[in-house]
Structure formats: C-alpha cells, structure tokens
C-alpha cells in the first residue's frame, strides 16, 4: 500500500504543475532572472553610457526602447533596473523571512518574557509609519554606489513583523505535536528542536512568505523611488525609471512603458507563483481533489 502513495515532493510538484497560471508565472520569472543576469551582454550600450547623438529619441533600430533626456539607452537602463530591483526584492525577502522565522519560532517555543518582549517589538515596529521613516533616512543618506544596501536594510527592518506573527502562531500549533515532546525527552536542546523539527515543518509557510515578500519589497522600493527616495543615480532601479518616466508620460511614453511592463509582469508572476505554492502546500485548497 505504501508504494501507491506519493512522496510529498512529488505531490507538491503535481499540484503546482496543475495550476497553469503559476507555471506561466514561474517561466516568466525565470526568463526575467536570466535576462537580468546576462543583461550587460544583451545591449551594446552600458546603462550609464551617454549617446550624444540621441537625446530623448523614440525607439529606433539603434536604441530599441529609445533614449532618455541625458542620452542613456532605455533598454540598457531597464535591464540594469530589473537587475537591481530583483536583487533588492530577493535579498529583502530572504532577510525578512529569516528574521521572521527566528523571532517568531523562538518567541512561541520559549514563551514567557521572550515572547512578550518579541511581541512588544513587533507591535512597536508595526505602529511606526515605516514609509515615512525609510523615506527620511534613505533620502538624507549620502547616496553613492552602496545606497541601495541601506535601502535593503531599511526595507528588511520594517518588513518582517507580520510574517513573524504568523510564524509564531504556526509554531504554537506545531509545538503541540508529540514529536516535539519526544525530542525534548530525548535530550535535544531548544534551539536544535526549533531548527530541526519546527522550522522544517513550517517551511511551506516560509517559502510562500518569502515569495510574496519579494514582490512586496520590489513594490516598496518602487514607490519609494517614485518619490525620489529609492536607489540614487547614477545607479537605477525599475522604480527610479518609473518615477522619472511618469513625469513625461504623455510626451515621451517610451520612458515609462518599458519599465512599467516589466514590473507589472514581474509582480504578477511572483504573486501567481506564491499563490500556486500556497495551493500546492495546502491540501484543503481548491487545487487539490479532483484530478
């Protein structure tokens, strides 16, 4: 009878593949990541190179997406912006999900003052108007090539709390399982129990959470950049490009159209994959059953 049962991974894959939107989303994300990585070789121009023959030119053979006011190639800029946005999104998602996992799991496992203190911090960070604070700090920083790192840290700092609360409540329910008690009575220490038994069992949430955090971080960076508080020039991101392009949308639409299409595609795909993962992990969801 055991042979007839599917391994958990196969089951996940089967359920995930059944969700066509998610599969398309995954393909788009992979394509975008590949394009971002090989970007510098896809364009004859560097993103910060200036073509003195072409200021604010519409798309042409030489510049497939046109040029900016300062004569930079839009195609090269979009590729670079995509790369930066992806890096920001991935790093922020990874960091904030990790923080959320650690804080949430430890708070729930140990309980007592640690839990109360963690919840206090979480609540405090939740009531602070994070957008304003990030805008102030990022806006007043000296700028330069590493300014995006500061942005990543700030986005992480204000991005982990809700996930941590979810991790905490999930840990509380996983903790009820007798295998946790069994591990304790085997002599396993608390941190090891968390790493070995609790986190793997809430991994599904963590993966979904990280996926959705990617799009959250990209959007947050975009809106900051739109108001001029994001990645500082000459470096650029999709948000910065959008912000610049939006100001001249009616007269020079190519400045806006490229980055906007890419970011919409990216966010939609990430969310589709996140939803697909959630359905695949959750056996009670609609995706399971008939098939």
């Amino acid at each position: 009878m055991a042979e007839a049962r599917l391994k958990p991974e196969h089951l996940l894959l089967k359920r995930f593949l059944r969700n066509k939107t998610a599969v398309v989303g995954l393909i788009i994300i992979v394509a975008l990541i590949v394009i971002a990585i090989i970007g510098p070789w896809l364009s004859p121009f560097s993103y910060d190179a200036v073509d003195r023959q072409a200021y604010l030119q519409p798309p042409s053979l030489q510049h497939p997406m046109g040029t900016t006011q300062s004569g930079r190639d839009m195609w090269a800029l979009t590729l670079h912006g995509l790369r930066k946005s992806l890096v920001i999104g991935l790093v922020v998602a990874l960091l904030s999900t990790s923080i959320a996992a650690i804080v949430g799991a430890f708070a729930a496992y140990y309980g007592g003052w640690l839990e109360r203190f963690s919840l206090w911090i979480i609540d405090l960070l939740l009531v602070i108007p994070s957008f304003l604070l990030i805008a102030l700090i990022a806006g007043n920083s000296s700028g330069g090539a590493s300014s995006w790192l500061l942005l990543v840290l700030l986005l992480t700092l204000f991005g982990w709390m809700l996930s941590a609360r979810v991790v905490r409540s999930l840990t509380q329910s996983v903790k009820q399982n007798e295998y946790i008690a069994a591990a304790r009575y085997m002599g396993l220490s608390g941190p090891k129990i968390i790493v070995r038994h609790i986190l793997p069992n809430i991994a599904s949430l963590l993966i979904i959470d990280a996926t959705l955090n990617v799009s959250g971080a990209i959007l947050a960076e975009t809106s900051l950049a739109y108001f001029g508080f994001g990645v500082q020039p000459p470096d650029t991101s999709l948000g910065t490009l959008l912000g610049d392009g939006a100001r001249q949308l009616s007269s020079f639409p190519w400045l806006f159209a490229g980055p906007a299409t890419i970011i919409v595609l990216l966010i939609l795909s990430v969310n589709a994959v996140g939803d697909g993962l959630r359905d695949a992990f959750d056996p009670g969801s609609k995706a399971s059953g008939k098939g």
């Binding site: 399982n177 295998y179 008690a181 009575y185 085997m186 069992n201």
Partner: peptide, 27 residues
C-alpha cells in the same frame, strides 16, 4: 534522561513528518 523514555499515544503526531525512518530512529 537516556535511561527514561516515552512512547506516546498518537504515533503519527509523534513522528516528525519531514524525517525518514532512519533519521527518526537515529536522532
């Protein structure tokens, strides 16, 4: 601790679903 062990009521809840039988017994 090692001289004293427990077997719980619900065998499915007392085995970590993410571990193989080998890992479980070896833990």
């Amino acid at each position: 601790r090692r001289k004293l062990q427990i077997v719980f009521q619900d065998p499915t809840s007392s085995l970590d679903p993410r571990m193989s039988v080998f890992d479980l017994v070896a833990e």
